[in-house]
Simulated scan of single mutants.
Amino acid sequence: MTLRKLPEITAGKLPEAFAFEPDSDALEKWNAGIRAEQTTENTITMLDVIGEDWWTGGGVTAKRVAAALRQIGDQEVFVDINSPGGDFFEGVAIYNMLRAHKQKVTVRILGLAASAASVIAMAGDEVQIGKAGFVMVHNAWVIAIGNRHDMRDAADTLEPFDDAMASLYAERAGVEKKIAARWMDDETWFNGEQAVDKGLADAFLTVDTKTDSTAAAAATPVNATRRIDAAMARAGIPRSERRSLLGEVKGGKHDAAPNVTHDADDWTAAARRLTETLRS
């Protein structure tokens, strides 16, 4: 069995000036309820945002993937992905872990592999995708806060990541790097047929998928909260203050939906503070 030789992506220290957040468009289009009908014991599921998710306590982390690989051991691995992306540093770490696995890695894109999740998908020796699935590629996307020096540092930090991703997509698709870079500049969405046609995936899924409406419904308020959180971050509000404001609106629990039984006056006051903060 000949395995694909994949390039390593080197990630340095994350500057304090910015933080990776899931792309709001990807969050809106992500159906969290899509999952495989059947899975094998040597399957790693990535059906959440990439990186630790403060709001739910979940998220796909490098630590979790490393533990799963140790448990699976020296055998073929299947990776089921349905993710809007998230923390690029975590995505790079997971990609490098999978590419270093000595046995075949088969990636199955059940619904969406966007942003950092698309980087992880490229670690597969074989990449399968559903005809109704999507791959989204774009330049590394962050929310940056600080002065002009912080902004320059952030841009300088991101540039080699974008170049590495362009090389990765180009090698997988068999195209010139400038073409892959253009896909990223345009934030390109490929449906299943387009992904296979362009070479970002090798074949269509051979496993059945199902939609869990309960899981999708449960994710809806959490996704809305994530989008509000991203909007506040773009407005320059520190993470600690964002968490405090949203925690008030949600009754003080980070993994709860907005609490409609919370005292109406308290809820209204918290919501008003949130609105005023976004407008300021």
Rank of each mutant, 00 (worst) to 15 (best):
K178G: 06
K5M: 14
G251E: 03
I44E: 01
N139V: 12
A114R: 00
V60N: 01
D265N: 14
E16H: 14
T10Y: 08
G251W: 01
N42E: 10
S118C: 09
D266L: 15
A154M: 00
K5Y: 12
A117C: 00
T43V: 04
F78K: 13
G124K: 00
A66P: 04
F89R: 08
Q71R: 14
P221K: 14
P160W: 04
D150A: 15
G111R: 14
E159M: 13
G59I: 06
G58C: 01
T188E: 13
V260R: 10
A271N: 11
I145P: 02
I237M: 03
L246P: 08
L6F: 11
P238F: 04
E90I: 05
K13N: 13
E52C: 01
G57H: 01
P221G: 13
R226G: 02
A170M: 04
K131W: 01
P84F: 02
R108I: 10
L278T: 06
Q38H: 11
G236Q: 09
G130E: 05
F18S: 00
V60Q: 02
D197L: 11
A257E: 06
D229H: 15
L246M: 12
R273L: 00
T277Y: 01
A66K: 13
A231D: 14
A166W: 00
D185N: 14
I109W: 08
Y95C: 01
G58Q: 00
T214A: 14
A195S: 08
G51E: 12
Q71P: 02
I72T: 05
T188S: 14
D229M: 13
R4N: 11
A123M: 15
A216M: 11
I72Q: 05
W141R: 09
V207F: 07
H149F: 09
G51I: 05
E171Q: 08
A269P: 06
G236S: 07
N147D: 11
D266M: 15
T106L: 07
T39I: 08
V77P: 06
D125W: 09
L69I: 06
V142E: 04
Y95D: 00
R148P: 06
G111P: 05
G73N: 05
F161S: 08
R272Q: 12
G252C: 04
R152D: 00
E176D: 09
E193H: 15
A36Q: 07
F20T: 02
G199W: 07
Q75E: 15
G58L: 00
A173P: 03
A219N: 08
E21A: 12
A117G: 06
E8N: 07
D48M: 08
M136I: 15
I237T: 07
S24R: 15
A256G: 10
I228W: 08
Q38G: 09
M136E: 13
N82C: 01
Y95T: 00
Q128A: 11
N96Y: 02
T275N: 05
E241M: 04
K253M: 14
D53S: 03
V127P: 06
A17D: 06
K29D: 10
K29Y: 14
A215C: 07
F89H: 05
K104V: 02
F134T: 09
T2A: 05
I179P: 03
L3N: 13
A154W: 02
A271H: 11
F88P: 03
E8V: 13
